[in-house]
Structures are given as C-alpha cells and as structure tokens.
C-alpha cells in the first residue's frame, strides 16, 4: 500500500475542516442564548429551538415540505418502477434513448425549470398550489428514483420471471411474488433519495411557492434574505440532523458509498 505522507495528511485535515466547518458552525451558533448571532455560552441554550417551535411560518413550511416530499417521492417511485422494468427488460440497447430522456431533467438547470413551470402553471391558473409544486417536484426527483430502481431492475435475472412462469405464475403474480420483492431495496432507497431531493429543493420552488405553500428551504431562504439570526441556524441544524438520520437509513438500505460514488454522475 502506498501511504500518504505528512504533507498529504495535513492537506487532508485542512480539507475535512473546510468541509465540516460551516456545518458545525451552524449547529454551534444555534445554541446561543443571545438575540443575535454569537457563540453560545455554557450551558447551551435551547432558546431558539423553542422560538422555532412557536414560529407558525416555519411550522407550516415544514409541514408543506414533509407532505410534498412524501407525495412526490411516492409518485416518482410509482412511475419509475414500470419504466425501470421496461428499460431493464428491453432486448439489446434499444431502450437507451428512453432511459436518457427519463434522466434528462438532471441536465436542466433548476432555475430554468422554475421559469418554465412558473409560465406553465400561471397559464393553467394553478401556480402556487400544492398540486403544481407536486408535479414539478415529481419531475425533478424522478431521475434519482429511476436510477436506483433501474440498478435494482438490472440486477433481477430475467430467468427468474421465466422460472415463475414455467411454474404456472400469471404476469401479475410474477411481479408481486418475485420481481417486486427483489426490487424492494432499490425502491426503498430510491424513494428516500427522491424524498431528500424534494425536501431540499430551493431554486425551482422559489418560483412556484406562494405564501400558503412555502416550503422549508424557501422559508429559510426568504428569512436569510431579510436577516440572518439564530432562528435560521436552529432550523438549519434540525435539517442537518434530519439529513444525517436519512443518510444512516440509506447507508443501511443501499450503502452510501455505492449511492454517492457508484454512479457516473
């Protein structure tokens, strides 16, 4: 094994510090007992977490984000599963254009999607509604769900379906008793990843949310634009903790290294 020298390890320490510093800072500042941004004194104060719990705007935004994430991730998976089966089972490489098309939202900047949906939904008279947000979110998170479901679908030996059929199973029985259970890890991790991306989305949603349907990232962004106070650091700390919990779940389900580093993009 070729080892890292002292210079390399120093570089590494600085790099890791650079990656973690702002996140740690957000969490640390959130425990202050002052009315402005400052380092907390001992013992840490939960003043701003109490304030957050009583802030109706943030609570509503959190609810919106939660329902939006749950609904859009579920719809994205429901659309992904049959599409993934179609692509994975297509002989030769004829399904490649369909796969590329279904992954194409990854190539469109979210600000462009925001502009396009604002125009589209305004024309349809539904801009600012939950349904409009839902449709937009399903589109941008579907590629993430599809990638993971597709990876699982490629892993299912098509002979298993043939074996089930030869034993007398009808197409729906093959799907329910053989294919679906084998796709389940991919579906679950695809759903989680899609949920996270919906829950975190800001750029596109800024264009689409109205005061009644503001999501948590948009609420945070609007708040930061006016003033940066310990309240947003408390909200952000909770988001960091939530992300860590979901990461741990994804790691158990799928392996985070495979999820983040395994795919080409």
């Amino acid at each position: 094994m070729i080892r890292n020298g002292p210079v390399a390890l120093l570089f590494h320490a600085v790099f890791i510090g650079f990656m973690l510093a702002p996140l740690v800072l957000v969490c640390v500042v959130s425990f202050t007992d002052r009315a402005f941004l400052s380092l907390p004194s001992w013992p840490p104060s939960l003043r701003w977490y109490h304030a957050l719990a009583e802030n109706a705007d943030f609570i509503r935004a959190f609810r919106t984000s939660l329902w939006l994430g749950l609904a859009s991730a579920t719809l994205a998976v429901v659309l992904s599963v049959p599409a993934a089966m179609a692509i994975a089972r297509h002989p030769a490489r004829g399904a490649e254009p369909v796969r590329a098309f279904l992954l194409s939202p990854l190539l469109v900047p979210h600000v462009v999607l925001g502009v396009a949906f604002l125009r589209f939904f305004s024309g349809a008279g539904i801009n600012g509604t939950f349904v409009a947000l839902l449709v937009a979110h399903v589109l941008i998170i579907l590629p993430y769900a599809l990638q993971l479901v597709l990876a699982a679908a490629y892993g299912v030996d098509p002979r298993l379906g043939q074996a089930a059929v030869s034993l007398g199973a009808q197409p729906l029985q093959v799907f329910r008793r053989v294919t679906l259970p084998l796709l389940m890890p991919g579906i679950a991790s695809g759903w989680l990843l899609a949920f996270l991306h919906s829950f975190d989305e800001l750029t596109m949603t800024v264009f689409l949310a109205d005061p009644g349907t503001t999501t948590l990232p948009v609420r945070l962004y609007l708040h930061i634009e006016e003033t940066i106070d310990p309240l947003v650091t408390a909200a952000s700390s909770l988001l960091i903790i939530g992300a860590l919990v979901l990461m741990a779940l994804l790691d158990r389900l799928y392996g985070l290294d495979r999820l983040l580093a395994g795919k080409g993009r």
Binding site: D157, R159, A163, V165, G168
Partner: peptide, 13 residues
C-alpha cells in the same frame, strides 16, 4: 404458464 412443463435453468433461477 399453462404448458405444465418443468424447466431447469443454467443459472438455476
């Protein structure tokens, strides 16, 4: 599914 043949696959499946 209705032919009632037993099939053994190379990969066992």
């Amino acid at each position: 599914a209705r032919r009632g043949l037993g099939v053994v696959f190379q990969s066992y499946a």
